[in-house]
Write a protein that binds this DNA or RNA. Structure first.
Lengths: 151, 151
DNA sequence: TATTGTTATACTCTATAACTATA
DNA sequence: TATAGTTATAGAGTATAACAATA
């Protein structure tokens, strides 16, 4: 989070951003990278990436959903979601059961998955604490409030 | 409260996010993807990606900078920046001149690059107008204000 | 015909490591 | 020994296309 001072006391120069200061996307991207790096480091012991974690949470909140519904909700392309679920199924964290519509699978967390998700949530809470420290509680809440209703 | 009934199966269902609602990173990521997609589409005619555009702007604002300084400023790893600059040099948009420190290159926009950047800024302004429409001017300004001073 | 899920390919971005040349 | 830049490789994430099974 902080970087050591160079031995000779010289500060590593940071240049001006010029016209980039007008672009919201630049700052959103920088923040997203910082957040994801911390999340990935904190959940490395679970071998769980942000996209995988988000899929587990949406399955938990919507048991029996189809892959198409999950993908639409999270903006994950179906080809990528198929591979991602294949991995989670291989860990015995989720199950794909046949559904009434013969084309779809109904997705469920299974026992190991629920246990892994509970542990992951604890690590994710530590990550959120880091973010609160980085941003300040007020700013973090303000950002969440501004971003939450973009549907 | 009254909720209109969707016509049978015609509305694509969106699932609840569950615990994901507590994670700022999720919403920051979704916004970043939306912003970058629009930017990339708008600047496709220039064949200019967000990272390339940001490098051109920082060179413009800091002529003669080294690659290391640019990379530190934008958070771009030096190996990737070398390839990125190789591409921009191939278009004759930038120049690498020898610097006093024999290890470094001094980077400059050249004529074609300045011309291309001017045109790109026009397209980027159209992109920003899209974002203003999407977010609303007030919210967009509030977000920029909250994110700008994260250093 | 359209939708769901799968496999495959290609491209970008990121993360390393190894190497050179200069300091 | 440390830094600047280059090249190479491997892993995610993303975007397509093609295909089989089902609606």
């Amino acid at each position: 989070m902080y970087k050591p001072e160079p031995a000779d006391g010289l500060v590593e120069e940071r240049l001006g951003l010029g016209h980039l200061n007008q672009h919201l996307g630049y700052f959103v991207r920088r923040l997203q990278v910082v957040i994801f790096k911390d999340f990935i480091r904190e959940l490395a012991s679970m071998k769980l990436r942000p996209a995988q974690y988000s899929v587990l949470l949406v399955i938990e909140a919507n048991p029996g959903s189809s892959q198409a519904a999950i993908g639409r909700t999270l903006g994950i392309e179906r080809a990528r979601l198929a591979r991602l679920l294949h991995d989670l199924e291989g860990r015995a964290w989720i199950e794909r059961r046949p559904a009434s519509d013969g084309r779809t699978h109904a997705l469920f967390l299974v026992y190991d998955g629920a246990k892994a998700l509970a542990q992951s949530k604890k690590l994710a809470a530590r990550h959120e604490a880091h973010m609160t420290k980085l941003l300040g509680a007020k700013r973090k809440a303000a950002l969440l409030d501004l971003l939450k209703d973009l549907g």
